[in-house]
Amino acid sequence: MAPVSSLPAPPPAPAVLLILLPPAALGDALPTALTSAALRALQSRLGPAIRVLKVDEASHPAVVRSFGTPALPACVLVRQGVELWRHEGLPEDEAQVTHLLEAAGTT
């Protein structure tokens, strides 16, 4: 009987950065557009190891409340349901992005 070759280990599940946002005020499209552009830029900086996902409190209030964040916007990095990192506000400078990548184990 031939030996059974072992299968390669599956790649680790990507981390997800949840961006928890307050509901946009009526007629407040400009900040929403700026936030979307900022999140696209952040996703570009993080690469494929971390998926950026926007969660708006108006659309998903229970999800946002479940994280118990004292202020919005806030970021929560999770992998397979385990919280790895949390930050009030959006990660805007390189030091915060580097810390985020370290928390995800990508550096």
Rank of each mutant, 00 (worst) to 15 (best):
M1N: 06
M1G: 14
A2N: 05
V4E: 14
P8S: 08
P8V: 07
P8Q: 05
A9P: 06
P10A: 15
P14V: 05
A15S: 15
A15E: 04
A15P: 12
V16Y: 03
V16E: 10
V16Q: 12
L17E: 00
L18F: 12
L18E: 07
I19V: 13
L20Y: 02
P23D: 07
A24M: 12
D28R: 15
A29D: 15
L30N: 05
L30W: 03
P31D: 09
T32K: 09
T32A: 10
A33Q: 12
A33M: 14
S36G: 05
S36A: 13
A37S: 14
A37F: 02
L39R: 01
L39K: 03
L39M: 13
L39E: 00
R40N: 06
A41Y: 00
L42G: 07
Q43M: 01
S44T: 10
R45K: 12
G47E: 09
G47I: 07
P48E: 07
A49W: 04
A49L: 06
V52Y: 01
V52H: 02
L53C: 12
K54T: 13
V55A: 10
V55R: 11
E57Y: 06
P61H: 02
A62H: 06
V63W: 04
V63R: 09
V64T: 02
S66V: 10
S66W: 04
F67R: 00
G68C: 01
G68T: 05
G68L: 03
P70N: 03
A71M: 09
L72W: 02
P73A: 03
A74Y: 00
V76A: 02
V76P: 10
L77M: 11
L77F: 05
V78Y: 00
V78K: 01
V78P: 04
Q80I: 00
Q80D: 14
G81C: 11
E83A: 10
H87S: 12
E88I: 12
E88H: 05
G89P: 11
G89D: 05
P91W: 06
P91L: 08
P91H: 03
D93P: 11
D93G: 15
D93M: 14
E94T: 11
A95P: 07
A95M: 12
Q96K: 10
Q96I: 02
Q96R: 07
Q96F: 07
Q96W: 03
V97G: 09
V97P: 08
T98G: 07
L100D: 02
L100E: 01
L101Y: 00
A103P: 11
A104G: 15
A104L: 06
